[in-house]
Computed example of a mutant assay.
Amino acid sequence: MTEKQAPKAPSTTALEQRGTGTLASEDGRTSIADTVVSKIAGIATREISGVHDLGGGAARVVGALRERIPGSRTNLSQGVAVEVGERQAAVDIDIVAEYGVAIADLAAAVRRNVIASVERMTGLEVTEVNITVHDVYIEGSDEDAEPSAPASSERGVSEVPSEVPADRPGQPGQPEVDVADRVADAVLAVPGVDALHPGAFGEIATYLPGRRVAGVRITDDRCEVHVVLQWPAGIAETTEAVRAAVRAVVPGPVDVTVGDVVGPGAP
């Protein structure tokens, strides 16, 4: 095993208040889930030529088994750990380098791309990117004989349930359109938004007679929206556009939470 840099846990003292990244204003809050930051870092790492895979040995074995399951998706955050504060983030990345690349140069390129991608998309300051090289991949090795994973799509509904029924409200025989439906349609029309996100346990929803609108929760004084963004949409700009679209439907503060991000090439 080749290791260029010893792993170092993200520095919590360098972060401003541990927890999900939140940007607050009088118009509402923008929250960024940790998994979004880890996926952005994972995608940015894979973009660098010379990176063969992410994760330590156990993580790669689990990932290979997972990808053989029909309909499964590549785990874009494999090998990535993050600490996210109010305005800052720190990242740990485990990689497998291709044989022949200069590891110091590879690590520097990964670090630059991760910092640029996370800061551009989230607006968070990246305080450090710690890179551990777990192995070197040699073409033609036993690993190369592994069967390829079935084609999969990061864009879908297996993890993000449909935000409205297939039969749209307002059609003949269907319930009348609710304000939550109008909010959902406005959000989905914003460029860079892939889908509405129902929350970790499906708890973010507006419940209506016989159905629910996932990803939208409206109270007397504010509206809460959870979304899935498309790579490489900027989070600050996209969430502001979401907020403006929602306020055109319902007045008052709008809290936007980015619950996930889909990778490049998703249909």
Rank of each mutant, 00 (worst) to 15 (best):
Q5E: 06
T12H: 08
A245W: 05
G265R: 03
I235R: 08
G170N: 04
V254T: 04
T22E: 12
G71Y: 07
G170W: 09
H52A: 10
F201K: 15
D92L: 06
T45G: 00
G85L: 03
Q5M: 00
T122V: 03
G123M: 05
S11L: 07
L188T: 15
D27M: 11
D94G: 15
I235E: 00
G173N: 10
G215N: 03
L196E: 05
R112M: 08
I95L: 14
E146A: 13
L229S: 12
G156R: 09
R68H: 14
D220G: 10
G56W: 12
A64Q: 14
G19R: 01
T35Y: 00
S49C: 13
T20K: 13
R247H: 06
A166Y: 15
A90S: 09
V51D: 05
T257P: 00
L188E: 13
N113M: 04
G265A: 05
A58S: 11
A44F: 00
N113K: 11
A116H: 02
A109P: 08
P161C: 12
A14C: 02
N113A: 09
I40Y: 00
G123R: 03
S153K: 12
I43K: 03
A233S: 14
D27V: 04
E139D: 14
A214E: 05
N130H: 14
V51K: 06
T74P: 13
I115C: 05
V114S: 08
G50R: 05
T30C: 01
V262A: 01
W231A: 09
G234N: 12
A116V: 03
V177F: 02
A89T: 02
P198E: 07
T22S: 13
P191H: 04
V157P: 10
E125I: 11
V216L: 09
P169I: 06
R247P: 00
G28Y: 05
A266W: 09
G263Q: 01
G56H: 09
V96Q: 14
M121D: 08
V91A: 02
G71V: 04
S148M: 13
A184V: 11
A81C: 10
R18M: 10
V157C: 11
A205L: 15
R87V: 14
G252R: 03
